[in-house]
């Protein structure tokens, strides 16, 4: 564990609490892509199979994984059941097959061994990299977002961005790197760059999050 990864994980944790807070206080999941949230459940479910099949890493690791699994399922419940009327599928139109297809192919080609658990692990890494796209696509379509939703996205983006210095640090201290995670992580962070730019230049200056026409 190093400081970058710790702050990254805490940022990931914060993003989920911000999202839950937004849904509970506004009693609405307006502006949140159900597809992106469903992809995160898929990501966690396929990757955290290692809780069963992998080696024990640490109590921290197990608790965090259980939290991410549980909270992402709970968010789906809120969106599909409790606050269903506030969820508008007509603007959540990104085609999931464009993400699931390529990620499946990539996972079959790039994995640490051709076993179900390892292929699913690779799949989860690739899928995580692009899981935010339905959400960003929705933002693009509506052209604006509530401030709280942008804080959620910023915290989520910061999480993966912080994993980059973590990998650099680990490369120098441990002398090795994980090409699958690092390359997918770079792509994932890259997808946020546009968002980060508007977040920093507008939302953090107290303005509304609006995309240029």
């Amino acid at each position: 564990m190093n400081i970058f990864r710790l702050i990254g994980d805490l940022s990931h944790l914060a993003s989920i609490f911000i999202l839950l807070h937004k849904i509970q206080t506004t009693r609405s999941c307006r502006g949140i892509s159900f597809k992106t949230q469903a992809l995160y459940v898929t990501v966690f479910a396929t990757r955290y199979l290692d809780l069963i099949f992998g080696e024990f890493v640490s109590v921290y690791n197990v608790i965090m994984k259980l939290f991410f699994l549980g909270s992402s399922c709970y968010i789906l419940y809120l969106m599909k059941m409790k606050y269903k009327p506030t969820n508008d599928p007509s603007i959540d139109t990104f085609r999931l097959e464009y993400l699931l297809g390529p990620c499946t192919v990539l996972a079959l080609i790039f994995n640490f061994s051709f076993t179900p658990v390892e292929i699913l692990w690779s799949f989860s890494i690739f899928l995580e990299a692009v899981a935010i796209l339905p959400q960003l696509f929705m933002l693009q379509r509506t052209g604006e977002a509530e401030a709280i939703t942008t804080h959620y996205l910023a915290a989520l983006g910061a999480y993966r961005a912080l994993y980059i210095p973590n990998w650099i640090y680990r490369y120098y201290t441990e002398g090795s790197w994980d090409p699958i995670a690092v390359l997918a992580g770079l792509v994932q962070t890259g997808l946020y760059l546009d968002f980060f730019y508007i977040y920093v230049t507008k939302v953090l200056q107290g303005q509304k999050f609006e995309l240029p026409a």
């Binding site: 994980d9 990931h12 080696e55 965090m64 640490f112 890494i125 441990e174 090795s176 995670a181």
Partner: peptide, 10 residues
């Protein structure tokens, strides 16, 4: 050198 680093990451 590469390794399966991320197995202990989240």
């Amino acid at each position: 050198q590469t390794t399966e680093h991320s197995k202990d990451e989240l």
